[in-house]
């Protein structure tokens, strides 16, 4: 597969909940091995868009999409494509840390076991926890409940859990919004490191965060009909210094939120 080809190609994507149109005519490409930040005011549909990439919206009975998303060149929403399989290739980290009420070990082992990991599970768990910069903190208490960890540790555990199944893409939905500033910095650092081997799409409402961690930034807004549309998408440095759209400039300079 050509490394220059985009990993996702979104064309004329609209998403409806019943009659309500939450996303309108989104066209964008997601670059491989880069961090793409989705920013925009709340209610602009950035989380909804993120959930289109791993078909999490399939779980909402009223949701349906129009348009197309190509993943690795083929249609993500083709009837023959299995959403379950897709989700094991496209990992996700959520807004609030959501470890399973099991041991630290079992949290990471869950994805390995259900997906039929062929190798040594203990090794895979250690590798994932190291990648998530959590190993040193938990290596002596892998059998303890994950709920005993701090919020920041829990979120890194959730990242380790997602990494364990060796996804190609990691989707992050405001992964640091529930954490304190120090834990947030740790997560941001981790995200940068991970971008060397993974494609990352991160939703954030924190513009400094987008500026700090991402390579590319996409700015979304909600129109008067409350449906979200893509205003501008480009290199992060360009978006934050010379935005093409006045609305982008207004948003990043904090003139509205």
């Amino acid at each position: 597969m050509n490394d220059d080809a985009p990993i996702f190609e979104v064309s004329s994507l609209s998403l409806y909940y019943d009659d309500f149109r939450a996303l309108k005519d989104i066209d964008m490409e997601i670059r491989r091995y880069a961090i793409t930040a989705l920013i925009g005011p709340s209610g602009c549909g950035k989380s909804t868009l993120l959930r289109c990439f791993n078909r999490m919206n399939d779980l909402i009975p009223t949701a349906r999409i129009e348009g197309r998303i190509l993943f690795e060149g083929s249609d993500l929403y083709h009837p023959d494509v299995d959403a379950t399989e897709i989700r094991s290739r496209i990992g996700m980290v959520f807004q609030r840390p959501n470890p399973f009420p099991k041991s630290i070990y079992d949290n990471v082992a869950f994805g390995l076991k259900i997906n039929g990991y062929r190798g040594d599970i203990d090794e895979a768990i250690e590798r994932s926890l190291r990648q998530a910069a959590l190993w040193d903190e938990v290596k002596d208490r892998l059998k303890d409940s994950a709920l005993e960890l701090s919020g920041g540790q829990q979120q890194r555990l959730c990242i380790a859990r997602a990494l364990a199944v060796e996804p190609e893409v990691i989707l992050m939905d405001e992964p640091a919004s529930a954490l304190d500033p120090i834990a947030t910095l740790a997560i941001e650092e981790l995200v940068r490191e991970l971008s060397e081997s993974y494609t990352i799409v991160i939703v954030t409402h924190n513009m400094q965060q987008a500026a700090r961690v991402s390579h590319e930034t996409a700015f979304l807004m909600a129109g008067e009909d409350r449906s979200g549309y893509l205003v501008e998408h480009g290199a992060t440095s360009q978006i934050f210094t010379t935005p093409k759209s006045e609305r982008t400039e207004a948003y990043i300079t904090g003139r509205f939120s």
Binding site: M1, F71, E72, G73, S74, V81, D82, T84, E85, S88, R89, I114, N115, G116, Y117, R118, G119, V165, E166
Partner: peptide
């Protein structure tokens, strides 16, 4: 899109 993962044997059909 069948780029199967070498380290995994998900056996999705069976699980379904």
């Amino acid at each position: 899109m069948a780029k199967s993962k070498v380290n995994f044997d998900p056996r999705l059909a069976r699980r379904k």
